[in-house]
Amino acid sequence: MSLIRLDARNWRTRADFWAALLPALGAPDWHGPNLDALYDGLVAGDNRVRPPLTVEILVPTPLPADLVAYLDRVRCVFDDAARDTGLDIGLRRTITRDSG
């Protein structure tokens, strides 16, 4: 099981999320920053990091509400990929104490 931890401390936009996630997954250069491409990459095994995997987003500070809503949609993509492949594919958010 691969565990990818992403620090969301400085995230304010969707672009910040994608800039962290895609390299962590080892996504190919042609991978788009969108939910359809994310699903395809998880299901087809296009990423260097393949299931079983969990992405844990460490959230030390409140995130903008629209980004939180988007991350809920991202979690649904992970859930759909897990259901459709039968593999352990997950995403979770963990609230942490901001040490800065």
Rank of each mutant, 00 (worst) to 15 (best):
S2Y: 09
L3A: 10
L3K: 14
I4L: 10
I4P: 09
I4G: 09
R5T: 13
R5F: 02
R5K: 08
D7N: 14
D7F: 07
D7P: 04
D7H: 10
A8L: 09
A8K: 00
R9H: 12
R14H: 15
A15Y: 04
D16L: 03
D16A: 09
D16H: 09
F17I: 06
W18Q: 07
W18D: 11
A19N: 11
A19I: 05
A20V: 00
L22Y: 02
P23V: 06
L25F: 07
G26T: 03
G26S: 08
G26E: 00
P28S: 01
D29W: 05
D29S: 03
W30V: 11
W30Q: 15
W30N: 12
H31Y: 03
G32I: 05
G32F: 06
G32Q: 13
P33Y: 04
P33A: 04
N34T: 01
N34M: 05
N34E: 05
N34Q: 04
L35V: 00
D36I: 07
D36S: 15
L38V: 03
L38H: 02
Y39L: 06
Y39V: 02
D40W: 11
D40F: 06
D40V: 04
L42W: 07
A44Y: 13
G45F: 05
G45I: 13
G45N: 07
D46I: 02
D46Y: 13
N47W: 13
N47Q: 04
N47I: 01
R48F: 14
R50L: 03
R50W: 06
R50A: 11
P51H: 15
P51K: 13
P51V: 08
L53S: 10
L53A: 10
L53Q: 08
T54A: 04
T54L: 12
E56M: 01
I57W: 00
L58H: 12
L58E: 12
L58A: 13
V59H: 03
P60R: 11
P60A: 08
T61Q: 06
T61W: 00
L63A: 09
P64D: 09
P64C: 03
P64W: 11
P64I: 09
A65Q: 15
A65K: 14
D66E: 15
D66T: 15
L67E: 01
V68D: 08
V68H: 10
A69D: 15
Y70A: 01
D72W: 11
R73S: 08
R73T: 11
V74F: 05
V74C: 01
V74N: 08
V74G: 06
V74T: 05
C76D: 15
V77H: 00
F78W: 09
F78Y: 07
D79S: 13
D80G: 00
D80F: 06
A82E: 01
R83G: 01
D84K: 14
D84L: 07
G86N: 12
L87I: 02
L87C: 12
D88C: 02
I89P: 06
G90V: 00
G90Y: 05
L91P: 07
R92Y: 07
R93Q: 13
R93V: 04
T94N: 08
T96A: 14
T96N: 09
T96S: 12
R97N: 14
R97Q: 14
R97C: 10
D98W: 04
D98Q: 01
S99T: 15
S99Y: 08
G100M: 12
G100P: 05
G100D: 15
